[in-house]
Design a protein around this nucleic acid. Sequence first.
DNA 1: TTGTTGT
Length: 565
Amino acid sequence: MHNAGYVSYENKDGGWNSVMNRDAYTSFGGRTDRGKSAFFNDRGAGSRGRYERGGFGGGTGGNSRWVEESRDEEDWSKPLPSNERLEQELFSASNTGINFEKYDDIPVEATGTNSPGHIDSFHDVDMGEIIMGNITLSRYTRPTPVQKYAIPIIKAKRDLMACAQTGSGKTAAFLLPVLSQIYTDGPGEALQATKENGKYVRRKQFPISLVLAPTRELALQIYDEARKFSYRSRVRPCVVYGGADIGQQIRDLERGCHLLVATPGRLVDMMERGKIGLDYCKMIKFSLTSNTSCATFPKEIQILARDFLEEYIFLAVGRVGSTSENITQKVVWVEENDKRSFLLDLLNATGKDSLTLVFVETKKGADALEDFLYREGYACTSIHGDRSQRDREEALHQFRSGRCPIMVATAVAARGLDISNVKHVINFDLPSDIEEYVHRIGRTGRVGNLGLATSFYNDKNSNITKDLLDILVEAKQEVPSWLENLAYEHQHKSTNRGRPKRFSGGFGARDYRQMAGGGSAFANRGARNTGGHGGSRGFGGNKGYYGGNYGNYGGNYAQVDWWGN
DNA sequence: TTGTTGT
């Protein structure tokens, strides 16, 4: 059996999409009953059911529901009738104010054998009636650079690994061709119902496509996009994530699930409960955030992905926004004790309608600062990992809608959240690594918009000095002379002088296969070369949901070889 | 050290 899988890695500075041509099932371990289960015995025997569109009341529901009925011929490529209410809900509010024209400047480099040519228009590939209709409804006029390259590659069923920034259109680059494929091919075996007590039930769902997201909010965001592009189709997307009522999610799954968006922990839970099987999953998009840099982590990711991928094409997409001139970056010296009053000055100087995102380093710090701002009379909210999922979603909503135009956040908000229109990002506490910084300021100045990023710097931030200086210089920002001096001093006592220079190529990363020394020598080193599919342990362990082997780079990377070193 | 990810 020839399955195509899609694996996406989301880094601080961007995301990785990988597409594999392999039996995805083996990558997830536990081939237990395949080939001898009721699946096969019952195949084609009786009821198959259909999906009834719209008409039922929202909730976590997707666009359709499963209805038992006798089997009849279905054409998955033909759009179902439109539904005005649903159309309104899916395509109205969001995604405004993004100027995709700006993307045209971004360079893309494709490496690997026989890479299909890129497209310039969505009309250059045949993605079918449903997809084209939804592209129109989404008001997408032109593909973004990553989409121009990724779509034909995925359409050609080639393996793909791509690194591009959050907000550069990776999610759609994956969803459009994948959904198009499902519409063309139909559900295949994945739709077979299991037979229990003479009745067909679909207790366990077998999604055809899986998207793994690093945070719950990101999962929701991807799910929203999936709903758009599956509008008027027979594909039913679902989302599962922790912190929310699992019963409700299970009931939603039982209505049918062809495309699942999940966070890792809850996915494992669902699999253990027998609610989800990946036996028929052909396409996987795997998102991963890391604490390491996009220019250094990729080698790890690429080596990991090599276990999933065959003859993949590597896409290096030029960085967008965050380090470009779109964002005015200011670094100011502020002592700890002065931070609050300084923050108030900044907030007062910012227009009331503008969204301001204030980053702090700790969850406690987030609570404290929110309290403070609240007492000072500011409409603000906060988001961090200790808040309940309900509160997190509520906070995000309040912020996005402008009811609370100030949001205090920990790193959770920096990871891939597409909050457009953030005018000002304030690093109340500077992060300890530069990638986190790049990611944070990337929340503003989203494509085509101008943004402002202000960072409070003091003695405690000496570890980021040099990298911060590099970023400012690269983005042609004004550099305070004191920062330059400190960076110079720091460099001479720094222990990581041997570290390769980052942010020098204009691309987020390079194809390690193209580099001197390649990955082979590296891969034979260390304990990670386990022989089988690297990903197979990703869902079995009880720690590090991205796999015991791969989840710990944040802490371990000092032991890992760097580029060519 | 903190942050993210299942109860």
